[in-house]
Design a binder for these strands. Sequence first.
RNA 1: CGGGGUGUAGCGCAGCUUGGUAGCGCGUCUCGUUCGGGACGAGAAGGUCGGAGGUUCAAAUCCUCUCACCCCGACCA
Length: 624
Amino acid sequence: MNTAATNDFARASSLAHRAGHICRWTRTLIPTLREAPSDATVPSHQLMLRAGLMRQVAAGVYDYLPLGWRSITKVANIVREEMDAAGSAEIFLPVLVPMELYAGTKRDEAYGDLLFQLEDRHGRRAALGPTHEETITELCKSAITSYKQFPLTLYQIQTKFRDEFRPRAGLLRGREFLMKDAYSFHLVQEGEGGLDETYDRLHAAYTSMFIRCGLDFTIVEAESGPIGGSASHEFMVNAETGEDTILICEKSGYAANVEKCEIGERPWKFTPHAQQLTDHHTPGMPGIDKVVEHLGIQASGMLKSVVFSNTEAGNRKWIVAVVRGDHDVNEAKVRDAVGFAVQLADEKEAKQAGFAIGYVSPRVVATIANTTLLIDPDAATGLATGVWATGADTKDHHVTGFDWARDLGSPLPVDQVATDAGRGCSVRVVGVRNAEPGDPSPKAAGSRLVARRGIEVAHIFKLGTKYSDAFDFAMMDKAQQRQPVTMGCYGIGVSRTVAAAIEQNHDDAGIRWPMAIAPYHVLIVLMKPDDADHAAHAERIAAELSEAGIDVLIDDRAERPGVKFKDADLIGLPIRLTLGAKSLEEGAVEFKLRSDDSKGDLVPIAEVVARCVSEVERGLAAKA
RNA sequence: CGGGGUGUAGCGCAGCUUGGUAGCGCGUCUCGUUCGGGACGAGAAGGUCGGAGGUUCAAAUCCUCUCACCCCGACCA
C-alpha cells in the first residue's frame, strides 16, 4: 500500500468532523419481508429485497429505499474522498448523449442494442449514456487550451443506462445503475504528468477504496473490450456466485481474467501416425458437441478451426485459428499473433471465399489464398497419438484420422513459422486459446493456474489516443509540436459494489454489513418503546453516538422482541444495542456485534458510547 | 436473440388434468390477552386470476394471440 492510501485510512477513521445521523424506524421506510420474492435467486438480490433496501420496478430497474440508498451513498462518498485525494475533480455530465457524438467513435455500432436510444420531438436522436468518453472528450477538447493544464482527471458519479440482453441478479447486473466514471488527460504516457503516473495513482486509490469498503478482492489484468485501449485492470470481489472467472497463479500472485490470461510455455510437436484419413457424413452438425457424439470421440481429439478476417476494408486477409475441440479461441491472442485487428469472419463472405463454415479444417490453408493458419500448441501436439478429427471442408462432412504432416498439404513449421509467400499463406504455431485452470503459469515455472469466481466492481483502462484521435483532440507541446492527447478512463460500479459486499458478507439470518458501508453503524433495539424512561435512555445514547459521528437507527416499533431481533439480523447493522427492562435496571445495555454469534454482553450505560466508538473505528480501519 | 420456466391479495403458494361459489399460510386493520428470538383468540379489509380475443349456458381452468418477469447461454461497472 502506498503512503497516500495509508493516510486516507487515518482520515477516514476519524469521526470527529461529522455528526452521525439518527433515524427512527417508525419514521422511515424499511419494508422487510419474511420470505424472499421468488424472482430473486442470488443471496445479495434476495437480501436486498428482504431487508427492504430496494424494490424492483422492471427488469434490471430498481427503487432504492432508505437503507439501500444510504449504503450506496456511503460507497459513493468513499469513492469521492479517494478520488478527490488522488487529485481528481468531480463534475456532472448529462445523461442524454446526442447521437452525433458517436459519429467519430462508431461506438453506437460497437454498443449496438446495448444503447438505450430515444428521439426528441424534433426527431433528434440521443442515447442515455452507457459511459461518457465521447461527452467528456468533446468537453475537454473545447475547454482545455494548453498542455500546461495537464494532467487533468475528472470524474462523476451518475446513473448509467445499458439495455443489457439479460439483466439479472438484482444490482449485480442492472440496466440502470450507479457508476463512477473518471477520465484523465495527458500529453504523454510516460514520465511526469503522464498517463502511467495517473493510472498508477488511481490504481492505488481504487485499492484503497475497496479496502475501506471492507471487501475481499483481487486485481486482475484484463482485456479492454469495446472501450478500447492498452493496459487494463479489473477489480474483482471474490465471491463464488460471481459471474466472472479469473485465473490466478498462487506462486507469483499473477491474476488475470480468462480473456486476458497468458499461458506459460507449452512444448509442442506434430506426431505422425498410421491411421487413415476417413470421411464421415455428419449432416447438420456444425458444432463440436454433436459431431463428437456422432463419431463417438472426445472433444479433445478434435481440431476446431475458427475463421477470422482483418477489419480494414479491401485487401481481405483470412486467419484460421485452430485449437483443440475442448478449448476456446481467444480473439485478442489471434489479433496479437497477426499484428492487426481481426474479427470473426462474416459467414457470407467466408463462404464466398470457399470456407465451409462449420466444417472448416486446417487444410484450407492449402486451397484458399491469403490465409494465415494459426495452430495452438495443444492443437499441434494432441493428447497422445496425434490422431485428429476435423472438418472435411465440405458441408455436412467431417474427417477422422487427420495427420498434420501428411494431410495438411502445406509445409508445417518446425520451429515457429512456415510461409508460402507466393500465395500469401503462412502456418504458425502460436498460443491462440483462452487459458484454463491447470494451464502452466506464465510467471512462475512449475506453477499451475487455478480458477476463482469474482464480481467485477471496477475496471480501469489506458485508452491512449483512441478517443482523442476520433475527436481530433490534440495540443501543442512545449516544443510547439502538435500531439494527440493521451487518455485514461476509470470506472466503478457503485451500486454493484453494494450488492457484491452483501454477496460476500451475509449469513442465513441476513446481511452482515462491513462497517464503512453499513446504512447505519448502530441499531438501538428498544424493547419497550412505550416506556418513557427507556425511550429517554435510547434518545440520550443516540444523541451521544451521533455527536461522536456514528449513524444510529432506533427500532422504536411496537413489535414483539422476536420480530425486532429477526429484523435486526436481517438488515445486518454492525452493532446492536438492546435496551430492555432487565439490563436497564442494572444500569446497562446489551451490546452485540452482528458478526458475533454469541448473545453479546452487558455494558454500563456510561461506557456504551465509548465502546461503540472504538468498535466503529476498529471496523472502519479494518483491512480486507 | 436462442433454449427453459412462471404469472392467482403486499409476500409465499394451492386450485387448472376432469369448466360451475376464488382458496390457504404469512403480512395488514380493529379489540382483548400477551411481551427477550418471527405470540394467542375473536373479528375485518384486501383479488379486472398478467392482458386481448375465442369456444361454451358457464372460463383462473380449454384454444389462439400478446405482454411481463425469472433461469441457462454471448457482452459488461
